[in-house]
Simulated scan of single mutants.
Amino acid sequence: MSSHIVIQPVTTKAQLKSFVELAYRLNADDPHWVPPLKSEVYALLSPKKNPFFEHATVQLFLAEQGGEIVGRISAHIDHLALEQPVEQGFGPGTGSWGLLEAENGEATGALIEAAEAWLKEQGMHRIIAPISLSVWDEPGLLTTGHDHSPTVMMGHHKPEYRGWIESSGYESAKKLITYDLPILEDFPPLIERIVKSGERSSKLKLRKVDKSHFDRDAKIIMDILNDAWSDNWGFVPMTDHEIDHVGVKLKPIVYEELIMIAELEGKPVAFMMSLPDLNDRTKKMKGSLLPFNWIKLLWWLKFPTSPTMRVPLMGVVKELQNSRMASQMAFMMIEYIRREAVAKYGATRGELGWVLDDNQGMIAIADAIESKINRVYTLYEKAI
């Protein structure tokens, strides 16, 4: 008979260290898990370093069994998410949990119960999970695609978690899809014709971002993003502090040729961001930049090569969505970045996503360039 599981709220530095370290122990035997840099994990969990805490209430929990830490979970309420329309996923009374790691189903169930109880005490009556921590970080549980490693800024979870979570009464609310795209070969002739047609337009111009004007272009991109995604399921607006924080984090892996802004009659109306797969370099670092991994990372950041490029974000202003112009701009940006990724960065494949499972426009674009689904993340919901 197994020993009793004790759930403890994280209140000390020692407990926080146990919370962080647990993931590295439980996933050590998974060849496809990419250990995040521990400094990044501590920053994510720090109210002083993560602006998410400015509009969120967070509680971390540990599960202990037989004197050993066997699980962890975060429970949190994003107060900006509470202000969103219910039909868009969140809304009043909706909290979340995330950062789940556990040795077994018993620990998972106990942790989820603790998170539910805490959220209920805070006045919540519904849960969307897992989310770690913000919806802009790592939303969803990996439910398809465990046979390969995730790309930069994507999560990876044990396949057992699905059954353990669903046995706690959770049902699928939304699926987030990523697409694998071979990029060495030209796109189908139809796409090439669409791109060439756009190039002949005197009103339409595509340009690379300019790192010498990084703040300006970052604001342009975030303004388009907040407009383009504002009606999407799960959308929560970023604060100005969060936008600045993201800019600081992404700047070292921003390369001008890999991020495009589309302008229509001189007005920015669309963008596409692609990032070289940093995970390809950090996977062997086991979460630490010491003793010499920081030198290797700095060298790679200066002269990056990567077989994989990830497209985490793209958007078109709402007034142009569902128009022929929107898809034309998307194909043009994808093609321009594809050429640069292959020629200058040694890329052989791209990854698009995530994409909401009901985003018919993006799904049609993914299908047109002959990409294939390679990973699915599931967001669950439950009334409490």
Rank of each mutant, 00 (worst) to 15 (best):
P130W: 01
A115I: 06
E54M: 02
P51Y: 04
Q59E: 03
L100T: 09
L119Y: 08
L82Y: 04
P85E: 06
V58F: 01
E87V: 14
T108Y: 06
E40C: 09
D30Q: 13
I7K: 06
P31G: 11
E21L: 14
K38C: 03
Q65R: 14
T94L: 07
E87S: 15
P31Q: 03
E68P: 14
D29F: 12
A43F: 08
G98T: 07
T94G: 08
Q88Y: 04
E83A: 15
Q88I: 06
K49W: 00
E40L: 09
A129L: 11
F90C: 07
I7S: 03
S46I: 04
K49Y: 08
L60W: 00
L80E: 00
E68T: 15
A115K: 12
P36H: 09
F90T: 10
I77V: 13
I131T: 13
L44K: 07
A63M: 05
R126H: 13
W97V: 11
L37D: 01
K13T: 12
Q15M: 12
S74E: 02
F52S: 00
G66I: 11
E103H: 08
Q15H: 12
G109S: 07
G105M: 03
L99Y: 08
A28E: 01
V70E: 01
N50C: 02
W97K: 04
Q59K: 11
A75Q: 00
A117R: 14
L60G: 00
L37Q: 07
R126I: 05
V10I: 11
T57I: 08
A81I: 05
R25E: 08
G71H: 09
T11F: 08
L133E: 03
V20Q: 03
V58A: 02
T57L: 01
V70Q: 00
H79K: 11
L60C: 00
R25P: 04
L44Y: 04
R72S: 07
A129Y: 12
H55F: 10
P35C: 09
K49P: 02
E83R: 15
L133A: 04
L22W: 08
H125W: 09
P130L: 06
V58G: 01
V70T: 10
V70R: 11
L99I: 06
E103I: 14
A28H: 14
P35M: 06
G67P: 12
G98Q: 10
L60R: 09
